[in-house]
């Protein structure tokens, strides 16, 4: 049962439909095993944004405060899109490579172990 309600057929209002975000979609970005950032971060981004722009403009805003950020080799980063392995194409837009509304993009940098090598 999708809900236990007094009246049959009750439906809830979807608060976060993509139409509510003024042309943007929400994308979450998470850097695995880097706990300096307590959680993945959320960004409203145009679906037409090429992945290269996300790396150049959004990643520094999200994670640039980390001392290891400048050492990230974006060519060897391991990606997960909504839990599945992902090979992003730099010139292709988010929407055209299955990065949808409220998609979660995680990346791993196995050679960078975080501050004090402690996953921070």
């Amino acid at each position: 049962m999708p809900v236990y309600a007094l009246n049959p057929g009750y439906q809830g209002e979807r608060m976060d439909r993509v139409e509510n975000f003024h042309g943007n979609q929400v994308v979450y970005l998470g850097w695995d095993e880097h706990r300096m950032f307590c959680a993945a971060k959320a960004f409203p981004l145009p679906p037409s944004m090429p992945f290269a722009v996300l790396i150049e403009n959004i990643m520094p805003e999200a994670f640039g405060q980390h001392p290891e950020f400048s050492q990230i080799n974006w060519d060897t980063v391991e990606w997960l899109l909504d839990g599945e392995p992902f090979k992003p194409l730099a010139d292709v837009s988010l929407a055209d490579q299955e990065v949808g509304h409220k998609s979660l993009i995680r990346f791993k940098t196995p050679e960078l172990k975080g501050y004090q090598g402690a996953g921070v």
């Binding site: 095993e33 706990r35 300096m36 993945a40 960004f43 805003e61």
Partner: peptide, 29 residues
Amino acid sequence: YTSGLPQLCQTCQIPMLFTEMDNPNQNSM
């Protein structure tokens, strides 16, 4: 002071700050 806004859990609404108990370095998602 961290930049940006965190991802939230749809149910408890807490930022997704909890980690996996078999790997406490990794956020649980």
